[in-house]
Design a protein around this nucleic acid. Structure first.
Lengths: 111, 111
DNA sequence: TATGTCGCTCTGTGATGCAGAGTATATTGC
DNA sequence: GCAATATACTCTGCATCACAGAGCGACATA
């Protein structure tokens, strides 16, 4: 059975990774606003992603205040890719014999 | 931004829910073997899903030994459905402007 | 009747997730 | 010009969680 990267398979971190994947470089404050999360919580999750080399930081001190720009690294993007593939396979594994008649495969399909 | 049901967005529980969605009624031992997880761990996650009314148990004592059959409840199936929809939306939210040229939307699309 | 297996459930502990306090610099009001 | 507030984080402590393995009763086998 497919196992899911526990680093990415956590509510806030999945959102973080998905958002960074689409948005490129984002500041701490923007992330905080987008994800509606407390400072400390955001910091700790970013730290984990940075420690795993899924995310990198660029710190600017030249401006008015220090500004940190966060972005997915190449390996972060790869991990996200792998993670999404694992998820898709896992959900496809639930066959359409489900009593609801709902097939996860169809739900996951976009447009 | 879409938030993800923390009860389902956990590696083991996502697998558990997906497996139950496809397999119907499953015994403790079968779950343990399929998910390759320790007894205690499986028990604690099942307990959480049961407490949330996502999973129900049918305990048989008539046979050789006690046997517990676990299955998704209707609300469990609904929650899984909602969860998958939220996931899909979240990953679609990462637009194809990604620097890799990889679009999560395409990856999620099945066949 | 001792030994082992099955099918769980309970318990202890290290890790995790989280909010809010703390720090340093900058800006605004008086 | 100086207190008060704001910005941009970082650190700390605590409640909860995830997990492995011990425990337990019923049965099966030697």
């Amino acid at each position: 059975m497919e196992s899911l990267d526990p680093l990415l398979h956590q509510p806030l971190r999945t959102q973080l990774a998905a958002f960074l994947a689409g948005a490129g470089e984002v500041t701490f404050t923007d992330l905080k606003r987008q994800l509606d999360v407390s400072d400390g919580n955001l910091d700790s999750h970013l730290k984990k992603l940075i420690a795993a080399d899924y995310v990198c930081v660029r710190k600017e001190t030249s401006g008015i205040r220090p500004q940190s720009y966060y972005a997915l690294t190449a390996s972060g993007q790869a991990a996200l890719h792998t993670y999404v593939a694992a998820l898709q396979q896992l959900l496809a594994f639930a066959p359409s014999t489900s009593t609801t008649g709902w097939s996860p495969v169809n739900v996951v399909t976009v447009k």
